[in-house]
Structure formats: structure tokens, C-alpha cells
């Protein structure tokens, strides 16, 4: 409870800081809208030309795009501290300040920053989700709503975990940010489309190593009434838990790496 209060107060302060420059903020939000709008446009144009992708119809494709987009950008919005601030804090030694406070490092890092500009991307994603659900004529039930919420929560946790990798690399002063991006941003781009269009190595990558397919796509396919690989319905509620498993593993690695943190600067 106390941590939630701390989080809310931090967010209030962050927003205060960001809104000090409203013109810049608006322009950047607009840029985000154009960016995600462009991605969405690509899907629309593909549907326009090809009509369908394997067994997936236009509505299905929008739905897959939407669930990934909303989940990813929500995580980026609230996990900004992990992906943006943390690596630079490690390099500048500013992380010392967080270590001097009686709170968990990850809690403080998450409280450190928020990226409200992502709201534009989230809006595009939500539009895609609604459009997809309409076009695919999804009959919403309580269970389906639950599956959607669980998928987004677990997907978000998985993405947060993947963001931790960059932090771990930075602490160990490994400079391979681009390769980490292949997993996170590459995972986002790839899994905007259903996993079964990919050849086996890519499927393995996004099922076993970075399980976007399990956390997001299996429940999405269940909601659309076309179970992934013909798996039973309960799979849509069990497989997303892999997000939590991945996060826990990466969190342990993160904790381990923190012990090797060598604060730079005097």
C-alpha cells in the first residue's frame, strides 16, 4: 500500500516536470501518433492487397496488432525508467543515489520516469483492438475479457523483464544494445502478426526464449475463436503465466548483476 502511495506521488511529480514544456510535449505526442499510425497503415494496406494471412482474416490481424501495440506501449509508458533512465544512471553513477534509499532498486527505477507521450501509440493500438474485435465479430464473454486482461498483464510483465536485459548488460558493461533490441523491439514487430506465419526458428525464439506467442497470441487466438495450434481453451489462461516465469528469471539475473554494480565516478 505504502509502495503504491510512493509510486503515485512520484508519477505526479514526473508529470509536473514533463508538462513544464507543453508545446514540446504536444509535438512529441503527435510524432508518436504518426509513428504508430504508420505501422497501423501498413497492416491496413496489407489487408487491402492480400485480404488474409493463412487462416487469419482482416479483423484477426487488426486484433493481433492491437493487443501487441497496447501492451507494448503501456509497458513503455510506465516502464520508461527501466528502458530509458536505468542504463544512463548506471553509466553516470547516479544509481548510487537510489541505492542510498530504503527501497527496492527496481521500485525506485520504475518510479523514476514515465513517458506519457506513448498515450498516442496506446490510442492507435486500442483503435486497432476495437476494430479487430468488431470485424472478427468476437462474442465477448466474461472469460474472454479475463483472458484479454491476463494476456496484457502478463505480456507487460514479460516486456518489462526483457527491458531488464539492457540494464543487466549495462551493469556488466557489455555494449550490445542492438542485439537486445532485436529481442524486444524485434519481438514487438514480429509478433504484431500471428506466430504461425513464421518458420520454425523464429517460432521457437518467440515461444520459448521471449514467449510473446504464449503470453499474448495464445489468448488472442482463443478470444478470436481460432485456438493457436488447435490448443484447448484452458491453454489461453495457463500459457500467459510464462511471462511471469520469464520476468522472475530475468529479475533474479538483475539482482545478481546488481551485486556486481561498480559505481563509477568519485
Amino acid at each position: 500500500m505504502d509502495t503504491v502511495k510512493f509510486y503515485l506521488r512520484s508519477m505526479k511529480m514526473q508529470l509536473k516536470c514533463q508538462l513544464q514544456y507543453p508545446a514540446s510535449f504536444l509535438l512529441q505526442t503527435l510524432a508518436q501518433l504518426v509513428m504508430e499510425g504508420g505501422e497501423m497503415l501498413a497492416v491496413i494496406l496489407i489487408v487491402d492487397r492480400f485480404d488474409h494471412l493463412n487462416q487469419w482474416t482482416a479483423g484477426d490481424l487488426y486484433f493481433f496488432f492491437g493487443i501487441m501495440s497496447v501492451t507494448f506501449y503501456l509497458t513503455e509508458c510506465f516502464g520508461r525508467g527501466v528502458t530509458g533512465s536505468f542504463p544512463s544512471m548506471v553509466r553516470s553513477g547516479q544509481l548510487d543515489t537510489l541505492l542510498l534509499r530504503p527501497r527496492g532498486v527496481l521500485t525506485q527505477v520504475i518510479c523514476w520516469a514515465i513517458d506519457p507521450r506513448r498515450i498516442a501509440c496506446i490510442a492507435v493500438g486500442t483503435a486497432a483492438l476495437v476494430m479487430g474485435s468488431r470485424m472478427a465479430a468476437v462474442q465477448w464473454t466474461f472469460l474472454k475479457a479475463l483472458a484479454l486482461i491476463e494476456a496484457m498483464a502478463m505480456g507487460g510483465i514479460l516486456i518489462l523483464g526483457l527491458f531488464l536485459i539492457e540494464g543487466i548488460f549495462t551493469i556488466r558493461s557489455v555494449k550490445s544494445v542492438e542485439l537486445v533490441n532485436a529481442l524486444t523491439y524485434g519481438g514487438r514487430s514480429a509478433c504484431e502478426y500471428p506466430i504461425d506465419v513464421y518458420p520454425r526458428p523464429l517460432r521457437v525464439l518467440f515461444t520459448v526464449i521471449a514467449p510473446f506467442a504464449l503470453t499474448l497470441q495464445c489468448p488472442a487466438a482463443y478470444i478470436l475463436g481460432k485456438p493457436l495450434y488447435g490448443w484447448p481453451d484452458w491453454a489461453a489462461f495457463v500459457t500467459p503465466l510464462s511471462g511471469l516465469v520469464s520476468f522472475s528469471a530475468l529479475y533474479l539475473l538483475f539482482q545478481h548483476a546488481m551485486r556486481h554494480y561498480r559505481s563509477t565516478g568519485s
Partner: peptide
Amino acid sequence: GGVLCQIFFGLVLVAVYRAL
């Protein structure tokens, strides 16, 4: 690193277009 990442994105895109 950048080249490997770009190759990866290329492979993903090609896979999608092939399926289409």
C-alpha cells in the same frame, strides 16, 4: 550489432510477405 539486428528485422519481414 546493428547489422545483425537489421538482418533479423529483414528475416521477419520476408517471412510475413512469404506467408501473405
